[in-house]
Amino acid sequence: MKNFYEVVFIVRPDAMPGLVESIASDITKIIKDEGEDVTKTEFCGLRQFAYPIKKNKSGHYVLLNIFGNSTTIAEIDRKLRINENVLRHLVLKVDRLDNNPSPLMQNKHYRENLLSNSGEEEFSAKNIGE
């Protein structure tokens, strides 16, 4: 049975250029090979940590939205755990996937808008790029 999953992982800040993308594309490939879907891939960029993780002060955040089987997800979880460049990862089963950019991606301006109009769903992806 297929379910919705969200995967967030954090890559070391001193990773070689392209490494973050290659980890994400490796995962995407595993899922695609099983005939399942990655509905959204977000590279949230280098972000400061609230506390150090393995003596690192920042990391590259990546978010994947996946519609797939639990066996595939278990395999991804295993791969992420083995990979030394991944500082931390979180795999969640969710009720539904949000295809709008996540709050991690949104700039400050957008967030202020969201708070003042709390809960309104009118913000499309177009409004955010500016």
Partner: peptide
């Protein structure tokens, strides 16, 4: 409750501002 009702805030673990 700020999270109940039609125009409520959404709880999301990624939304640091909320």
């Amino acid at each position: 409750c700020p999270f109940s009702g039609k125009k409520a805030l959404q709880i999301n673990y990624k939304d640091v501002a909320v």
